[in-house]
Design a protein around this nucleic acid. Sequence first.
DNA 1: GCGGCAGTGTCGTTTAGGCAACAATTATAG
DNA 2: CTATAATTGTTGCCTAAACGACACTGCCGC
Lengths: 185, 185
Amino acid sequence: MNKHDRRVKKTIKALQSALADAMLDKELQKITVQELVNKADIHRATFYSHYHDVYDLYEQMEHDAISEFTKFINDNPAGHYENIYNSIIDYIYENPALSRLLFFGKGIDHKFQEHMYDIIEEKYLEIWMQEENISSVSEEMLYMATYHIQGCLSIISLWIKNNFSTPKEKIIQLIYSIDARWNMP
Amino acid sequence: MNKHDRRVKKTIKALQSALADAMLDKELQKITVQELVNKADIHRATFYSHYHDVYDLYEQMEHDAISEFTKFINDNPAGHYENIYNSIIDYIYENPALSRLLFFGKGIDHKFQEHMYDIIEEKYLEIWMQEENISSVSEEMLYMATYHIQGCLSIISLWIKNNFSTPKEKIIQLIYSIDARWNMP
DNA sequence: GCGGCAGTGTCGTTTAGGCAACAATTATAG
DNA sequence: CTATAATTGTTGCCTAAACGACACTGCCGC
């Protein structure tokens, strides 16, 4: 299967949306293949040509999302850490169903958020060390990082919870304005 | 081409959405096939296997929509005319892009709305004549029909203009409550 | 218990969509 | 004016998705 084929991309996305939707009000265990293909409007056989079962679909979803986020964050060209959130917010906005699932899905160990945090923190420290031309970070810096990252993530989390009713631009602006109010260590 | 094939339905819908989207800020004349297939994320050759050009797509869209509405209205089982709006609102909600186009698209003679009005009025009169067991309608009734139909259509129109920010149920409730406040002739 | 109903995997066949390449026709800019 | 970029139709080949059918499992109500 060529994963760059439009048809493949579309069915994958349709199935992911269907699962994300289903998981908002149902445990992963209780979701059937039938149900998913109905929602996604694809043939059942097509499902099996991509995934072994519902769990398989979920695992690939989570894995893909983490890869995507990691890529976005590491590809960050300018190296300004505000841009990290720009990429993240864009991706979330383009994949609302997936995001809702990863942040609020039922019956999941929410290690995804920890993963997310780790990736971002790593980038923060990398940028800081580069900017300040130092080889290690102080304990104070780590606390600052936690404070700021978790704060921003909770803003994004709330945004998703509110079904993106706040305009994307406003969220970005918000995070930027918080940054501006900061005196970097 | 079997128009009941899922793939066909999906590409048709994707192209319709793309055109509807494009027409909101561009004249029909200025829209290219290229642009549409990019938006719809389908191959250009696929476009030509369905339509001759952009105008062809538009005409079929309008025609299909009118057919759909007519069908909904005439299939109305109970014969209660409030249900007409139920069907219409459902359809609009399921086809937001198409609806925006038909109500607010640029560079179109908005004969669609007149068409819509005619279909609804016909149904109204049919129901009334049946209920009252009469063979013709009074002039007064025609005025009442105009008043009520155009009023309801303008509510729906505003709803679309507001990007469906008002919940669907509330719109239906609104129209029902208006009905309840009426003393039928 | 058993009949029916929903879901599961799998298979062979058909078909719509994807793709790349083509010549031909318009823009659009330098 | 000319080049060069973009859009247009069209083609042949390939493949993923659709479809219907199959036997099989598990579950629920009578």
